[in-house]
């Protein structure tokens, strides 16, 4: 009945069976906190983000941090070798993680990472796409929808302009990127369900 935490934001999927649930959670939290702080630092640098109200900044980050991390850490998923590198630096195969209890979310994240990486975006394009992911006016709890929507539209226009400039013969890339947004929502929902299962367990 050994427990495993098959999230790559953990240092390792192995959980010390002698530790309490609280201790396991504390250790996991300690592991992913720097990545979350990086997302906040990234958000602060998005032009216009700091002009949103404080509650809306928090709401956007609460709702979108997981999706931003999926984009930023897509490279942890090695599609060719079917392995995932955890934050501790060690690689684990899909089969190993499946044996530890990983489910459909794992496959869905591999699919997403493969498609995103195959688009061959530059660092600048990826950053702008990540900003679009974070600034979404339809997140729950947004107070000033108009302000968030205006910033979202500005960012989407900038992304389209950059993609069009850099890939003049590949007009479908921008559309493909926008279609990644509902994919990320779906992954976010699946992840929330897994968290619930973990907390209940």
């Amino acid at each position: 009945n050994r427990m495993h935490l098959v999230c790559p934001m953990n240092t390792s999927p192995h959980v010390d069976p002698h530790k309490s649930g609280h201790e396991v959670w504390e250790e996991f939290s300690h592991s992913f906190t720097p990545a979350v702080r990086e997302v906040v630092e990234f958000a602060k640098k998005i032009p216009g983000f700091r002009d949103l109200s404080q509650p809306d900044q928090v709401s956007l980050l609460k709702a979108g941090t997981f999706e931003v991390l999926v984009v930023r850490f897509a490279s942890l998923f090695d599609v060719k070798d079917r392995t995932i590198t955890f934050l501790g630096g060690k690689k684990y195969s899909v089969d190993t993680l499946r044996a530890m209890g990983a489910g459909d979310l794992l496959n869905s994240m591999f699919d997403f990472s493969e498609k995103l990486i195959n688009l061959g975006l530059s660092e600048e394009e990826m950053s702008l796409f990540t900003a679009v992911v974070l600034v979404s006016a339809d997140r729950s709890g947004i107070e000033n929808v108009n302000s968030v929507e205006a910033l979202q539209e500005t960012l989407i226009r900038a992304l389209r302009s950059l993609i069009t400039k850099n890939h003049p013969n590949e007009s479908a890339i921008f559309t493909k990127l926008l279609l990644k947004l509902p994919d990320l929502r779906s992954l976010n929902n699946m992840h929330s369900e897994q968290l619930l299962a973990f907390k209940v367990h």
Partner: peptide
């Protein structure tokens, strides 16, 4: 489980990380 971020303690991390910046704005 409508608010996974709060359950994870994410909200606290986010607020603290934003805080410095927000205090800076208030000044």
């Amino acid at each position: 489980f409508s608010d996974p971020a709060s359950n994870l303690g994410l909200e606290d991390i986010i607020r603290k990380a934003l805080m410095g910046n927000l205090e800076e704005r208030q000044e």
